[in-house]
Simulated assay, not measured.
Amino acid sequence: MASLPPLREVVARHGLSASKALGQNFLFDEQLLDRIAAVPGDLDDAAVLEIGPGPGGLTRALLRAGARVTAIEMDRRCLPALAELSEAYPERLRVIAGDAMKLDHDELMEQHYAVVANLPYNVGTALFTRWLSGESWPPRWTSLTLMFQQEVAQRVVAVPDTSAYGRLAVLAQWRASARLAMKVHRSAFTPPPKVMSAIVHVEPVAMPGGVSARILERITEAAFGQRRKMLRQSLRGVPGALEALETLSIDTQRRAETLSVAEFVSIARILSA
């Protein structure tokens, strides 16, 4: 790493600037980047998938931690800077030019891999939902360490009876553990975004038996799509849902935000039978 020029110098030499259209914000603080790379634990010789590396700030930190990195970047302006980094770390960094939303991550990676990414703001939630939505469990990824807008991060770790609690919390918590690992001030980025950011760390846990992920998603979509309405109204369009509430002795006058993750799982289990 000592032979590499400072990242700011690389960015200037290649004439790079963060693209608002791509939701980019660059990080240059090496100490901060090393702290982010440390969140998932020991990465020595671990396979890591990074989405949207940009000029490679977090990529450098992951490589310093000993990881073998596959980085997916759709901004072709950044590819020359990443190619220089790949040359400095032979066989340790593979750069794939493409759209992470359109690629099969499991096909690209080994049997097990960690995901570590400063996610572009415009696709972060969609990617997160995709990683957590598969019927097959446990997934091929061993952990997700992701930078979100702080508001989104809080929705991932939210608890019932709070304004942040919703579909994202249920999705993240019903068969995984999710925690807020660290907050990142807006001033750490170039250019500074209008909002604060935070790192969320998610690890898969044992999946409750007899539950379909697709059915759970349908229930939460209906319930939180009309979150101010009582369950007897919001779940009316889901076949069997009101009967499941009765079986579980869940008051139909409650609202979605008052139900625990376990209660949503119980409803889904009955409808999955």
Rank of each mutant, 00 (worst) to 15 (best):
G237V: 01
Y89D: 03
P6L: 04
M182A: 12
L82P: 02
F148R: 06
A153M: 08
L103S: 04
A153G: 12
W141V: 01
Q226Y: 05
G56S: 06
R68Y: 11
E30G: 07
W141I: 00
S260K: 10
I267K: 04
M147H: 08
R140D: 11
H105T: 08
S177Q: 15
T125A: 12
P90E: 10
D161M: 10
G240N: 08
A178F: 00
T247L: 12
L63T: 04
E221H: 12
I270H: 07
K229R: 14
R94P: 00
Q173R: 13
A188P: 02
D104Y: 09
T59F: 04
L271G: 02
L49V: 08
L16V: 04
P80F: 12
R92T: 09
A65R: 13
G15W: 09
A126H: 06
L245M: 08
V170S: 01
G41E: 11
R35E: 15
L216F: 11
L127A: 05
C78N: 13
F128H: 13
L62N: 09
A206V: 13
P138M: 01
A100Q: 03
I72T: 04
M230Y: 10
V238M: 06
S260A: 13
E73W: 02
E246A: 15
M109Q: 14
R228P: 09
L127N: 00
Y121T: 11
G237D: 12
T252C: 05
L43M: 10
E73T: 01
G240Y: 06
P40E: 09
S197P: 07
R186H: 10
S260I: 01
R186Y: 06
T59K: 03
H201Q: 14
R13P: 05
A88V: 07
E135M: 10
W137I: 04
L132M: 12
